[in-house]
Simulated scan of single mutants.
Amino acid sequence: MLDIVIEARKAALAPGMDVKRILPFRLHRMVGPFIFMDHAGPVNIQPQISSNIDVLPHPHIGLSTVSYLFGGQVMHRDSLGVEQIILPGEVNWMTAGRGISHSERFEDPAVLASGQLEMIQTWVALPEKDEEADPAFDNYKPEELPIFTDAGVWMRLIAGNAYGLKNSVKIHSPLFYMHIVLNKDARFGLPTEHEERGFYIVKGRIELSGVSYPAGQMLVFTRGVDPVIIAKEDSVLMMLGGEQLGPRHIWWNFVSSRKERIEQAKADWAAGRILLPPTDNLEFVPLPQDKRAQGNPPPEALS
């Protein structure tokens, strides 16, 4: 059955940069191991204020961030010394493990002013055995990601396995993540091999069991349900899911199976024990003074 429909909510990522926040949601915090999902753009910002939306260096623990662009470009710099221009169709998978910091800067004002920038960012929680793994960053080019086409259907496997497709993106638990484009009237189904599955409607409108769902909604399903997805207009979906990992605590940019580990990460960032990117270390995001329960991320949550 359809477990839940999640409406994207507006969240402020930076001054002048609002995003659609899909996960976490208070009634359904994760889909498989995916614990966070933001949809940014299309962004249309005047050049004189473009520097205001840069995401300054900030920390993560206990998760992998996944950046996927539909258009535009982003400059990634992290505390491992990696500098990577993120381009459309690539997979940029950063595993925080025991701790990493990174920045995301939008260094081409023309891209922002033209409305080209559009991206999805997700966090994938790590299994307990990998929460303290060494941090890492990997960039995968579009040609490394398998594509399948059929009548009215185009899909790219971003990570994991689904529909008989696999790729070499390094993951830590069973999951799948896909970019799917459907032409009007195309029919599509969910992969059946995963415990929990969902899809976010980026563009367009789909129909399921006679009910129409617009862009900006995520639909989540459990195993054993095989609905027929009908595109009522040209549509773009981000489909994801996998094995559930158990409860996770999330506060700001920190994810862990243990509350005390979140507290340690807060202290480490405040004390400067998590290094800054060596080529982007003149400014950073300070630890928020948010006092809410650790189960509720403050609105400043960054990706």
Rank of each mutant, 00 (worst) to 15 (best):
M119F: 15
F199K: 05
P247L: 12
A12I: 14
G32P: 11
E104V: 06
E283Q: 15
Q73H: 11
V55C: 04
L282M: 05
E143H: 12
I171N: 06
I147W: 04
F106I: 02
L276K: 10
I274E: 06
L56N: 11
K166G: 00
V19A: 15
G295Y: 07
A136K: 13
K291G: 05
A265R: 07
P297S: 08
F284G: 03
V153T: 13
F254I: 09
M30F: 08
P24G: 10
V91G: 04
H179P: 01
P57W: 05
K10E: 15
G224W: 01
P214A: 06
L87H: 14
V91A: 15
G97Q: 02
N161L: 00
A159R: 05
V211P: 00
E143N: 14
G89C: 11
M239L: 13
H60M: 11
V91D: 04
V220F: 05
N281G: 10
A270T: 06
F284E: 11
S256Q: 12
V220W: 06
S64F: 01
R29I: 06
R205S: 09
Q294F: 15
G81T: 12
G41K: 02
P33L: 07
I180Q: 01
L182P: 08
L13F: 09
E128I: 15
I147Y: 01
P277V: 09
H60S: 03
H194P: 06
R156V: 04
G62P: 08
K129D: 15
I85Y: 06
F106V: 08
L157R: 04
H102S: 02
V66C: 05
D234G: 01
T192N: 12
L126Y: 02
F176P: 03
L87T: 14
L165A: 04
A215K: 08
V225Q: 11
Y68P: 02
R292H: 12
H179R: 13
N253A: 11
L219E: 03
I158D: 02
D138P: 00
G210R: 03
G241E: 08
P247Y: 15
S168V: 12
S67I: 10
R292W: 11
G204P: 03
H58I: 10
Q121L: 09
T95H: 06
G242V: 10
V202K: 10
A11K: 14
E300Q: 13
E196L: 09
V285N: 06
N92V: 08
E283F: 10
R77Q: 15
I229Q: 02
A215Y: 00
M17H: 11
R261L: 06
S303C: 13
R273M: 12
Q121Y: 05
I6K: 01
S235M: 06
P109Y: 09
S173F: 01
M119E: 03
R205C: 04
M37K: 03
Q84G: 02
V169N: 07
R197T: 15
F34Y: 12
E195N: 10
I61G: 04
E7C: 01
G224T: 04
I206G: 04
Q116D: 15
F254V: 08
Q294T: 14
E7H: 14
G81L: 10
M1I: 05
I100E: 04
L126W: 08
E104S: 10
A231V: 08
H39Y: 11
D280C: 07
H179M: 11
A271I: 03
P15L: 03
G89D: 06
S103D: 13
